[in-house]
């Protein structure tokens, strides 16, 4: 019996086909990393439930007016100073009686920490622009981020983002809770 030679398949065009497919995927897909400010919304309050009373000293009121002006406790401020204002308010390092109360809590592995009860209350006018709103939200996020980093450096020697232990991260988050409250929108007509 004669040995039949198997004809070799020419595979040189395979690379071209694969290249075409590759280019097709490069064109039709997007690799854009999306970024944003993330928030967890509160559930809609029960109309029958009583609104919990909040002491005046624990509240920092931020208003965005219809002309995109930012008011803190009724007085106009630029968004630049807002970050430090929130930090100063929440931290209350001097234990001022006009600034938020502190509650001592035992959080593992931090030990006993003073948790501020300060709440940032944000109210925006329906006519205000989204850009101003995001700028204020950005400042609030930055303020809490700075406070958390500060505590993390104090306790563990590294900023929050460099902590690898999820338990430590969670502890820092509990010690400085991001207490942001937003006004309920006016009833729609």
């Amino acid at each position: 019996m004669a040995i039949r030679r198997v004809p070799e398949i020419n595979a040189s065009s395979m690379a071209d086909i694969a290249f075409l497919l590759l280019i097709f995927f490069l064109v039709t897909t997007q690799m854009k990393t999306e970024v944003g400010i993330q928030r967890v919304l509160p559930p809609i309050p029960d109309p029958k439930a009583k609104i919990p009373e909040v002491k005046e000293r624990n509240l920092l009121k931020i208003d965005i007016t219809r002309n995109d002006k930012v008011l803190v406790n009724g007085s106009a401020t630029g968004t630049e100073g807002l970050r430090d204002r929130i930090r100063f308010f929440v931290a209350n390092n001097s234990n001022d009686s006009a600034l938020p109360e502190k509650k001592f809590q035992d959080i593992y592995p931090l030990g006993k920490v003073a948790v501020s009860r300060g709440i940032v209350f944000l109210k925006s006018h329906p006519e205000a622009s989204y850009e101003t709103y995001i700028r204020v939200q950005n400042e609030i996020t930055a303020a809490f981020q700075l406070l958390r980093d500060q505590l993390s450096k104090e306790k563990f020697g590294v900023p929050l983002a460099s902590l690898s232990d999820p338990q430590k991260k969670e502890a820092i988050r509990q010690a400085i809770p991001a207490m942001v409250s937003e006004s309920e929108p006016e009833p729609m007509k």
Binding site: T33, E34, G36, I134, R135, T141
Partner: peptide, 11 residues
């Protein structure tokens, strides 16, 4: 045109 923010996190 999304608003700009410096503290944004990755999704």
């Amino acid at each position: 045109v999304p608003p700009a923010a410096s503290e944004s996190q990755k999704l």
